[in-house]
Design a binder for these strands. Structure first.
Lengths: 235, 235
DNA sequence: ATTCGAAAAATAATTGATTATTTTCCAAAT
DNA sequence: ATTTGGAAAATAATCAATTATTTTTCGAAT
C-alpha cells in the first residue's frame, strides 16, 4: 500500500522544457533537422506554441547530449557531422561500451539478466525496416533500450551517461546516412549472441562480439559518409 | 591583417548565463555550496541581481557538468557525494584519462608538446597550499589546465569533454574533503614525471604514472570520506 | 569590382509579472 | 499519537514584452 502510494507520488507533471527537449532530440536523431542547421529560436518557439524560455532550456539539454552546439550570442546549431567525428564516436563506443559491458558482467545481478533478456526479446520480436513510421520508431527504441540495458548492470551512472550520449550520436549517423539503418546482414543474430554471452557471464566473448558489432556499423557508416562527401565537398 | 580582424571579431559579448554558470561552478567545486544542498532559485537570483531565466540556463549547464542534479518541478540540487560516486569517478578517470593520454601521445604534435611544457611550467612555478585565496585558485587553475592540456593532444572532443567532467568531479572531492587539497607528498615531481614521459612519447610509462597519480589521490579521498561518514551516518 | 561604415532588420538574451506545482502548516478525524 | 485533507505559503516554470547583440543590407568611397 505504501509502496503503491510512493509510486503514484512519483508521477510528476512533466515540464514543457522536457517535452520540447524530447521532441527535438527525436527530430535531430531522425535527421529531420539537418546536421549543422542553425536553429532559429523564434521559428521553433512558434512551432511549439510556447515562449522562448522553455525552448532555451531544452536547447541546453540537447547541448549536453552532444546533439546541438551553442555559442554565446550566436545561439544554437545542430551538431555537424564529419568523418572525424564519426571515427571518434565509433572508437569511443568501442572503448566505453565494452568497458561498461565488462563491468556489467562483473557486477550485474539476476535482475539485470532478466532485463537484458526482456530487452532482447522486445528487440528481436519487432518489425525491422518496416515502412510504417511507428515500426521504425518502435525498433529504434527497442534497439537503444537493448544496448543501454546491456550496460546498465555496471551500476555506474556517469559511464552509462557517456555511453548513452555516444549511442545517440551513433544512432543519428545510422539513421541519416544508411539507407537501411537496421540493415546489418543479421542484426537479430548479433544482438542475440551478444546478449546471451553477457547473461552467461562470458565477458571476453561478449565484449568481442560487441566490438565487432560496433565496428561493422562503423565501417558501413564510414563508407556512406565518404561516398556522400565525394558527391558534396566538405564544408 | 585579416587574421587580426578575425581574432578581434571572435571577442563576443559574454552572456549572463555563462557568467553565472562559471561562478556557480567555482562555488560548487570549492564546496561553498555544499553537496546535496537544494538550490533556491529565487535566493540565488537575488544574489546575482538577475532574473530567473539566465539562472535556469546556467543550472542546465551545471547539470550537464554533473555538478547539479535536476528533477522536473522540483528544481536543482548540488550533486551529492558518496563513496560509491567517488569510486566511479576515480575508476573512470583511470580508464578514460589514460585512454586519452595514450591517444594524445599517439597523435599529439609539437605544438601539443609545447603546450604541455607550458602548462607544466605554470603548475610547478605556482604557490601551493598558500593561504591566500588567489594562490589557491591560481594553483587549482594551473592544475586543471595541466591535466587537460596533457590529454588535449588526443584531438577527440567528446573524450576530452568526458575527462573534463570527471576531472571537475574529482577536484570537488579533493577540495572539499582533503585538508591539504594539493597535499600529495610530491605533486610537482609527479606532475613533472608524467609530463616529461608524455612529451618524450613513452606511452606506457606516462600512463602508468598517471594511473598511480589518480589512484593515490583516490585512496586519500576514500579514506577521508570513510572517516567522515563514520562521524556522520550516510544519508 | 571591392571595401567600408552606418542603418535597418533579425535574432539572441533578459526582464519582471503571472501561472502552475509542490511543500508546509494546521485542524479535524481516527 | 497518527493520519488525512485542505488552505496557505513557497517555489518552480512560463509568459510576453523589452533590451542587447549580431547579421544583413545598402549606399558611398576607393
Amino acid at each position: 500500500m505504501k509502496d503503491r502510494m510512493n509510486a503514484l507520488a512519483d508521477i510528476r507533471k512533466e515540464t514543457l522544457s522536457s517535452r520540447i527537449a524530447a521532441d527535438l532530440r527525436s527530430s535531430i536523431l531522425r535527421g529531420d533537422i539537418a546536421p549543422d542547421e542553425k536553429i532559429n529560436l523564434d521559428r521553433v518557439r512558434e512551432q511549439f506554441s510556447t515562449s522562448v524560455t522553455p525552448l532555451r532550456e531544452a536547447m541546453s539539454r540537447l547541448v549536453a547530449d552532444g546533439l546541438v552546439v551553442f555559442e554565446d550570442q550566436r545561439g544554437y546549431r545542430v551538431t555537424p557531422v564529419s568523418l572525424r567525428d564519426l571515427d571518434e564516436v565509433v572508437r569511443l563506443r568501442t572503448d566505453l561500451e565494452t568497458l561498461a559491458l565488462g563491468y556489467a558482467i562483473q557486477s550485474g545481478d539476476l535482475d539485470w539478466e532478466g532485463r537484458v533478456a526482456g530487452a532482447l526479446y522486445k528487440l528481436t520480436r519487432g518489425e525491422r525496416n518496416g515502412d510504417a513510421e511507428n515500426d521504425v520508431e518502435t525498433w529504434e527504441r527497442a534497439h537503444a533500450d537493448f544496448h543501454l540495458t546491456l550496460i546498465d548492470g555496471c551500476g555506474m551512472p556517469h559511464l552509462i551517461g557517456f555511453c548513452r550520449m555516444l549511442h545517440n550520436l551513433n544512432d543519428r549517423y545510422r539513421r541519416i546516412f544508411l539507407e537501411r539503418p537496421a540493415g546489418d546482414p543479421d542484426p537479430d543474430g548479433e544482438h542475440r549472441r551478444i546478449g546471451e554471452a553477457a547473461m552467461a557471464r562470458r565477458a571476453d566473448e561478449a565484449t568481442e562480439l560487441l566490438k565487432a558489432h560496433i565496428a561493422r556499423t562503423g565501417a558501413r557508416l564510414r563508407t556512406a559518409l565518404q561516398a556522400r562527401s565525394q558527391k558534396e565537398p566538405a564544408k
